[in-house]
Computed example of a mutant assay.
Amino acid sequence: MEILMSFIVGILFTAATYLLLSKSLLRVIIGTAVLSHGVHLLLLTMGGLKKGAPPILQEGTAAYVDPLPQALILTAIVIAFGVTSFLLVMAFRAYQELKMDDMDQMRGNDQHE
């Protein structure tokens, strides 16, 4: 199962890199969101996909699941949601002002004069 998750993380990182290198501002934001999902799966996979009891102290339970990777992922999800929301609002405002979402034209590097 860890090998399958590793391949999925690699596919997500590849897709995110492709989207981040595009000229459209919306694609860059979607690439950032896909990259954060890949990081969440990477954290979950690196923590180990174990089966066991919940981390509650009881007699007779030998194997416990580590709650730390789940807590890290939960925190990362909240942070990624905040960053994605902020980027979407900034992109909407830039589109309202400039009426475009092409990154090269926003920078002033337009070669088509």
Rank of each mutant, 00 (worst) to 15 (best):
Met1Gly: 00
Glu2Arg: 03
Glu2Leu: 11
Leu4Thr: 06
Leu4Met: 12
Ile8Asp: 03
Ile8Met: 08
Gly10Lys: 04
Ile11Thr: 11
Leu12Pro: 07
Phe13Val: 06
Thr14Gly: 11
Thr14Met: 10
Ala15Asn: 12
Ala15Lys: 06
Ala15Val: 13
Ala16Asn: 05
Ala16Tyr: 00
Leu19Pro: 01
Leu21His: 10
Ser22Ala: 08
Ser22Thr: 15
Ser24Met: 08
Ser24Tyr: 11
Leu26Trp: 14
Leu26Ile: 12
Arg27Pro: 02
Gly31Asp: 02
Val34Gly: 10
Leu35Gln: 07
Leu35Cys: 05
His37Asp: 09
His37Arg: 11
Val39Tyr: 06
His40Met: 10
His40Leu: 10
Leu41Thr: 01
Leu42Val: 07
Leu42Ser: 05
Thr45Gly: 02
Met46Val: 01
Gly47Pro: 05
Gly47Tyr: 06
Gly48Phe: 00
Leu49Tyr: 03
Leu49Lys: 08
Lys51Gly: 13
Gly52His: 09
Pro54Ser: 08
Pro55Lys: 06
Pro55Thr: 04
Ile56Lys: 06
Ile56Ala: 04
Leu57Asn: 10
Gln58Trp: 12
Gln58Asn: 14
Gln58Arg: 14
Glu59Leu: 12
Glu59Ser: 13
Gly60Ile: 09
Gly60Phe: 07
Thr61Ile: 15
Ala62Tyr: 09
Ala63Ile: 13
Val65Asp: 03
Val65Leu: 12
Val65Pro: 05
Asp66Gln: 02
Pro67Glu: 01
Pro67Asn: 07
Leu68Val: 12
Leu68Pro: 02
Pro69Ser: 06
Ala71Met: 14
Ala71Tyr: 08
Ile73Gly: 00
Leu74Ser: 13
Leu74Met: 13
Leu74Pro: 04
Ala76Tyr: 11
Ile77Glu: 06
Val78Asp: 00
Val78Pro: 02
Phe81Val: 12
Gly82Phe: 11
Gly82Glu: 04
Val83Ser: 09
Val83Met: 14
Val83Trp: 04
Thr84Pro: 02
Ser85Val: 15
Phe86Asp: 06
Leu88Asn: 06
Leu88Gln: 05
Leu88Val: 15
Leu88Ser: 11
Leu88Arg: 07
Val89Cys: 01
Met90Gln: 14
Ala91Asp: 05
Ala91Pro: 04
Phe92Leu: 14
Gln96Arg: 15
Leu98Phe: 15
Lys99Arg: 13
Lys99His: 14
Met100Cys: 11
Met100Phe: 07
Met100Tyr: 03
Asp101Trp: 00
Asp102Gln: 05
Asp102Trp: 04
Met106Tyr: 12
Arg107Thr: 10
Arg107Pro: 00
Gly108Leu: 08
Gly108Gln: 00
Gly108Pro: 06
Gly108Val: 01
Asp110Lys: 15
Asp110Phe: 13
Asp110Met: 10
His112Phe: 13
Glu113Gly: 08
